[in-house]
């Protein structure tokens, strides 16, 4: 469970987040939507403190986040993040991308880390590519390895920051398919995305943001059937 209380974020040239109050429940799949610049990525990055809120508190499973390495390391190993541009470790093979943190953070033995990494890579359908370096993978394959790298930590929560936005159109499908299969296992997922059909299919809940504020926060079915705000209606119409 993640609580966001009175969170604001100010980058110096105006508020990016205005007084956000939210609770993310376990085993819930939340999609955060909104026009670009609405603060959705910033909000997501506040949840693991890659972005430190200007005001307010984030609580992850009863731990209040603060800029203390011990606190952040203990929380981040349970809250994994998948990035728009993958950010695989370029000097390591797919397999070693997935064993690094389990070995160094979770202190697993080499064998245990290896087993986990191979399981995770199989889960995203990338086992056959385990010895490839990122430079020899397509965008979609990189993102699937990045998801496997997160899964290998056996996290409680998975954060996705526009995971398909940097992909060529033909690679989007494989990543969404991977995420759909994770959703079926009822992992706790918080996803920032513009993929509306995908959101409709998997989301339990939709948070719609605009100009740093949460405009709507409703069950996905209700949201897609009839968005309440004019902004959301226009946004959905635009995405078609």
């Amino acid at each position: 469970m993640i609580h966001v209380k009175d969170v604001t974020k100010d980058f110096g040239d105006g508020n990016v987040l205005n007084d956000i109050n939210l609770t993310f429940n376990d085993h819930e799949i939340t999609v955060i939507m909104g026009p670009s610049g609405s603060g959705k990525s910033t909000l997501l990055r506040c949840l693991n403190y890659l972005e430190v809120p200007t005001n307010g508190t984030i609580t992850v499973q009863d731990t209040v986040l603060k800029e203390d390495p011990k606190v952040l390391e203990s929380v981040r190993k349970k809250v994994a993040m998948v990035f728009q541009s993958f950010y695989l470790f370029n000097h390591l093979t797919a397999l070693k991308n997935c064993t690094l943190a389990p070995r160094r953070v979770l202190k697993l033995s080499d064998t245990d880390a290896l087993n986990r990494a191979e399981d995770s890579l199989s889960e995203v359908g990338m086992a056959a590519f385990k010895n490839r370096k990122p430079s020899h993978l397509s965008g979609g394959q990189k993102q699937r390895v990045a998801i496997a790298r997160s899964l290998a930590m056996h996290p409680d929560v998975l954060l996705f920051d526009e995971p398909t936005s940097a992909l060529d159109p033909e690679n989007v499908g494989e990543v969404l398919q991977t995420m759909t299969s994770l959703a079926k296992k009822k992992m706790t997922m918080i996803i920032v995305t513009h993929e509306m059909q995908f959101a409709k299919r998997i989301a339990d809940r939709v948070i719609f943001m605009d100009q740093g504020s949460v405009i709507e926060d409703r069950p996905a079915k209700d949201f897609f059937a009839a968005p309440a705000s004019k902004k959301a209606q226009a946004f959905l119409a635009h995405l078609g």
């Binding site: 994994a80 990035f83 470790f89 370029n90 953070v105």
Partner: peptide, 26 residues
Amino acid sequence: DVGQTEASLSLGMSHFQTYVRVLLPQ
């Protein structure tokens, strides 16, 4: 890319581990 650091930190690696295991080798 700063993303290398962010990805490493987001996995719970410390700043020093990130430096030694991710940044310095590259």
